[in-house]
Design a protein around this nucleic acid. Structure first.
Lengths: 151, 151
DNA sequence: AATTTTATTGCAAATAACTACAATAGCAGG
DNA sequence: CCTGCTATTGTAGTTATTTGCAATAAAATT
């Protein structure tokens, strides 16, 4: 896996470094979301020289490369996770409940997209905001903004 | 428009304040993306007492409420825009080109989603990463990671 | 109109995130 | 295996973003 990513980077004209490997490993093992600083702390236990600046740069870089997913989870901050098992997020505005959505629901969309735009898309992430079924019933009858934003 | 949003906030148990109105106005007039600090500066010319903390808090709040869209545009920082004319972003990993995508391309997806999850979705945003047609041809033949991430 | 409740703000301080620049180290080519 | 080119890192400083808390002020109630 890491070999493949290294190769891919080189093909794209970039380099694989110990720092980048460590960060990828952390994200791979964790599976779920991690904050930049959390990643930094873990990385420093393996590679003591690791700095925050490098972590931030690397995360942005990996996001652009499609290796990592930057997710906007609830509050304003960004969390990161490995982009292997693609999925998306559904956040309840009311209770903050955070659901994962499998990528296969979006597969069709995905294909159409490449056709329409001519882009070769290799990374995407969706954040949905709304009301979960529970919170929804407790507020039934409200006229939501959504009414005139979506037919 | 602003009246409706005020009403909506009250229905949800929140309050409309001068600060929130000013920020909404700025986003409405600007139309496009604005950074939090840019918004803050503009707001201060109307409402001198406005502070950065309030701007950040308000933007997060409006995002949760679905009034505002937080977009992850290119670098790591978040930009904000009014969520009237819904659209999404397509960013080229290579040249950074930033395209807008109309929401209607995603309408179908959107509907399916509400059915499957039971959520009432009233806000969403998609960020796609990929290679634009130009950059794509200049790298043709590369084996992209995408190959085994998407059937 | 006054009162009450509590969401929201401003202030100030703490974190978090980014950037420039010189030094380092991948990796392609000889 | 060396060498050169340049992507990447660390350092240190800057800027951006968040947070606690007391003060303020929406909006419902009387």
């Amino acid at each position: 896996m890491l070999d493949r990513l290294s190769e891919l980077l080189r093909q794209r004209g970039y380099r694989m470094t110990p720092q980048r490997l460590v960060i990828l490993n952390i994200l791979l093992q964790a599976g779920g979301h991690l904050s930049p600083l959390d990643i930094c702390h873990r990385a420093q236990s393996t590679l003591p020289g690791m700095t925050e600046a490098t972590v931030y740069r690397t995360l942005n870089f990996f996001t652009q490369q499609g290796f990592v997913l930057a997710a906007h989870v609830g509050n304003g901050q960004l969390m990161y996770e490995i982009a292997l098992r693609e999925h998306h997020h559904l956040i309840c505005r009311q209770c903050g409940a955070n659901h994962e959505i499998e990528h296969r629901f979006l597969e069709e969309l995905y294909r159409q997209f490449q056709e329409v735009t001519g882009f070769k898309i290799d990374g995407m992430h969706v954040t949905f905001f709304g009301l979960c079924p529970q919170c929804r019933t407790s507020r039934e009858g409200n006229k939501l903004l959504a009414d005139d934003r979506h037919a």
